[in-house]
Design a protein around this nucleic acid. Structure first.
Length: 854
RNA sequence: GGACACGUAGCUCAGUUGGUUAGAGCGUUUCCUUGACAUGGAAAAGGUCAGAGGUUCGAGUCCUCUCGCGUCCACCA
């Protein structure tokens, strides 16, 4: 007999097992013969760092479904890749340049910077790939993609050209969100709104040729340098007389009108609002409607421009301080109020966003010829894409409804450049530079999400690639709920537009992984959990289980070591089940098929019946994409039924055929969740002839479902539990062998071993106490240890409880509305239950009587 | 201001067309070195399923309101 260690040596074995899978070739769907297909394009992580626990969580879900589908005989493609992640990578790489070489990107120049950044990403990708493999992802690495790969990129840029021709993109002079630190425009979703303590300044604007003032309230006094009007609500009686008058803008001595606009809230501040069309979203709208001039007083570095007169060159916050001082000096600052207001910050670097008017490229989301917005709404509402959890559908629909044009140009260097060329007044849009000299290419690069939003079909070689034809639309997209708008919505929009089809049929969201206190993992907080460290310490299988067990889609979860540890313990359990089986028989082997004749004892019938039940449940839960319920059912069966009961009984009633059969099936059922340990066990027992990864997913065999065995065995369990319970209640030494007597035939050996009772030798004694279940009766010689009053009380309590239940069920069954309205199954089960309670009550009453004789 | 979640055992969470006496893991208490496993086993304690109404034969599950916590959206200057 071979020597098998007490625990699965995951550290030693995981690498080799992964290699075995890779060498089998079955990560590549081309090597699988099947007409059925399953495809999941894996979300590409940013190629600038390393894997974090969020990636691990998503990948685990993807791999579980991938392995499940593969075992169900499908050609499975999990297509991995990496994202160039424009702004974020540029930030990371610039920091690296500064730290390591003390240089800026300007010192390198655009081309060199791009090349070095590219190499950096490729390098990081290699590292990240090795991390992904550690988690056990069964992805086809031969198809791995990068968002800047020439073929896919070409497709993505073609989309832009097509959109240009369709009038769905335009270059416009509009107000946009500007991050002065990243030096680029941002789309609306890249801006976060944070509540901050601020101040509301009340500033007096003198009326021209008058001693009167209009007092405006603002949180951003520095923008007053660019004011071109003051607006009030036309219904606001306080200001009726001022509408149409001219004010003198303090500090600038510029004359500006008082205008009326319905969008002004009379309740807020003073009801009079300074209008700065160049630096505020609403003001820009109002400025457009009232044809007000735009005066840019803040530049791209968040400094005051020459238009700002004496404040020119100051940073925004310095300017604010100086302006407040100056206004106070002139007696124009009426008061300051504390105020909590929303500040817009850059999603990447948290720098305060400056709204600026700028010339940028936009996607028209609601064009006349084609409306991305409406088509996507139709797609979602039609149910061509299923969303998990379902309520995220509503969020998507609401978001799409409010969608504004999408700014897609970025002023960074890292990323694909716009396929647009200019010569004088001419503009050319196309994949290649036009012929002729003097054409200058647009400086802008694309929003990362413009290319990753096309990921499902650029990776498959749209429009003519074989993979595209075979695998598109893909089956499932699994992504973090934080990417709902950034990515998921854009994939739907662009996929539907470009290919005319939904990019995926199922959209599954994972929640965020948080720490034990519910905080987000973050570098600054220092609470990160490194997936690789966890794998080192507890193994990849334990990590996988802890990331998906007891978790529902879209819902955040918490991860901490004690939790992972308990799943590591489960892996050990699985391993020891195998160890027991191995040692139970010198010729122990896995068994693929058994017949009814192989089921010799009640325990055999029971465990196989339970197993078939679990196969059915797990398969159904997996089809419903309910990983958690699948695992729950499996774990209960494996640990409670198989290990704690069947194995114990099997020690007395050997049946290695049943053992081999059950083990074979649970290895298969567990494989998607814990691929490493199951593959290892399978390999040892199967002499490595096949990989478990390609084994067929079990089918539930109805012929083994045996309701009678289930009830009978659970009655036996009840009896054992009762005896154990008595021992514990009366502090009877657990090692003490009790004398017992049974009139009818009973599982002497099992009860003897599990409850430590020697049955049948001494015959019935007067002082024996009766222990009964519905189907079994036993007399035990523990009467002298029993506290009759205590025992009677507890029995009476149970009788009362049962009578309650009997009354409840009888009432139910007498109720005509119930018998008329409830489904037959429910009625039937109520009837059965009632009989069961009655029987139990009878048994208890008999016990009570027996007890009274002691 | 609008929307969406969440509130179930001390802690972390399951509970999917409303239908067994509401579950698990961890933790706690008592006991067990029984040759698969102490990363284990047995027994137990612990819940008016946030609160109040309603619908129903029947509600943790559906509806309304309240309270609490959170997230997202929005042009609160």
């Amino acid at each position: 007999m071979r020597e098998i260690s007490k625990q699965f040596d995951f550290k030693e074995r995981e690498g080799a097992i992964y290699k075995l899978w890779e060498e089998s070739g079955f990560f590549n769907p081309d090597n699988i013969e099947s007409a059925k297909r399953y495809c999941n394009i894996l979300p590409p992580p940013n190629a600038n760092g390393e894997l974090h626990i969020g990636h691990a969580s998503g990948y685990t879900v993807m791999d579980i479904f991938g392995r499940f589908e593969r075992m169900n005989g499908k050609k499975v493609l999990l297509l991995p890749g990496k994202d160039h992640a424009g702004i974020q990578t540029q930030v990371v790489f610039e920091r690296k340049l500064k730290e390591e070489r003390g240089i800026t990107r300007q010192m390198l120049g655009r081309e060199k910077f791009y090349q070095e950044c590219y190499d950096f990403c490729i390098n990081r990708s290699d590292y990240m790939r090795s991390q992904e493999k550690r988690i056990g992802i069964s992805a086809d690495w031969s198809r791995e993609k990068f968002t800047l790969d020439p073929d896919g990129l070409k497709t993505a840029l073609e989309t832009f050209v097509k959109m240009y021709k369709d009038g769905l993109v335009y270059k416009g002079h509009r107000i946009i969100n500007w991050c002065s630190r990243c030096g680029t425009a941002l789309s609306d979703v890249e801006v976060e709104h944070k509540e901050r303590e601020g101040k509301l300044y009340h500033i007096k604007y003198p009326v021209k040729d008058s001693k009167e003032f209009v007092v405006v309230a603002t949180t951003r006094p520095e923008t007053m340098l660019g004011d071109t009007a003051v607006a009030v609500n036309p219904k606001d009686k306080r200001y009726l007389g001022f509408i149409g008058q001219t004010l003198v803008l303090p500090l600038q001595n510029r004359e500006i009108p008082v205008i009326a606009d319905r969008r002004i809230d009379m309740e807020f501040g003073t009801g009079a609002v300074k209008i700065t069309p160049a630096h505020d979203m609403l003001d820009w709208q109002i400025g457009k409607d009232h044809k007000l001039p735009e005066i840019q007083v803040i530049d791209e570095k968040a400094e005051i421009t020459l238009e700002g007169g004496s404040y020119a060159g100051l940073g925004v916050s310095e300017a604010r301080a100086k302006i407040i001082t100056d206004l106070a000096g002139q007696g124009l600052l009426e008061k300051e109020e504390a105020l909590v207001n929303n500040v817009s910050v850059c999603e990447r670097c948290k720098t305060v966003i400056e709204p600026l008017v700028s010339k940028q490229w936009f996607v028209k989301v609601d064009g006349e010829k084609y409306s991305l917005k409406k088509k996507t709404l139709e797609l979602i509402k039609s149910g061509k894409v299923e969303v998990y959890p379902e309520n995220f559908k509503k969020i998507l629909i609401q978001w799409l409804g409010n969608l504004q044009d999408w700014c897609i140009s970025r002023q960074i260097w890292w990323g694909p450049r716009f396929p647009v060329w200019y010569r004088g007044e001419e503009t050319y849009v196309g994949l290649e530079a036009p012929k002729g000299d003097d054409w200058i290419q647009d400086e802008n690069t694309f929003d990362t999400w413009f290319s990753s939003g096309q990921w499902p079909y650029t990776t498959l070689g749209y429009p003519n690639g074989k993979d595209y034809k075979n695998f598109y639309p893909t089956d499932t997209m699994i992504t973090g709920r934080d990417l709902l708008f950034f990515w998921a919505a854009r994939m739907l929009m662009l996929g539907q537009y470009r290919t005319g089809k939904t990019p995926f049929r199922n959209l599954y969201f994972t929640g965020l992984v948080r720490d034990k206190e519910g905080h987000k993992f973050s570098k600054s907080r220092g609470n990160g959990i490194d997936p690789l460290e966890i794998i080192e310490k507890f193994g990849a299988d334990a990590l996988r289980l802890s990331l998906v067990m007891d978790i529902s889609p879209g819902q955040d979860s918490r991860l901490f070591e004690e939790k992972i540890e308990s799943f590591r313990n489960f892996v050990t359990k699985l391993w020891n089940i195998f160890r027991y089986c191995e040692q139970s028989d010198v010729e122990f082997a896995l068994v693929e098929k058994i017949s009814k004749r192989d089921l010799k004892t009640l325990a055999d019938k029971w465990i196989v019946s339970q197993l078939e039940d679990v196969v059915k449940k797990v398969s159904e839960h997996m089809k419903d994409k309910n990983i958690s319920l699948a695992q729950d059912a499996l774990r209960k069966f494996t640990w409670d039924s198989f290990a704690d009961w069947y194995l114990e009984i099997n020690k007395m009633e050997k049946n290695s055929k049943v053992l081999g059969y059950v083990l074979d099936r649970i290895l298969k059922l567990w494989h998607p969740f814990t691929p490493f340990v199951t593959e290892e066990i399978y390999g040892i027992l199967n002499s490595g002839s096949n990989v478990l990864m390609m084994a067929k997913w079990p089918k539930s065999e109805k012929k083994f479902i045996d309701a009678k065995a289930q009830t009978d065995f659970s009655d036996l369990q009840d009896l054992v539990a009762k005896i154990r319970n008595m021992r514990a209640n009366y502090h009877i030494d657990p090692t003490e062998l009790l004398e017992g007597y049974a009139k009818a035939e009973i599982e002497k050996e099992i009860i003897g071993k599990l409850a430590r009772v020697r049955i049948g030798t001494g015959g019935v004694k007067k002082k024996m106490i009766q222990v009964s279940t519905r189907l079994r009766t036993l007399r035990l010689d523990i009467a002298k240890s029993i506290d009759v009053a205590k025992e009677t009380a507890s029995i009476r309590k149970e009788i009362a409880n049962l009578e309650n239940l009997i009354a409840k069920n009888e009432g139910m069954l007498k109720n005509k509305k119930f018998t008329a309205g409830a489904p037959t199954e429910v009625i039937l089960s109520a009837k059965n239950r009632l009989e069961e309670y009655k029987e139990k009550a009878r048994v208890q009453k008999e016990l009570e009587k027996n007890l009274s004789r002691l």
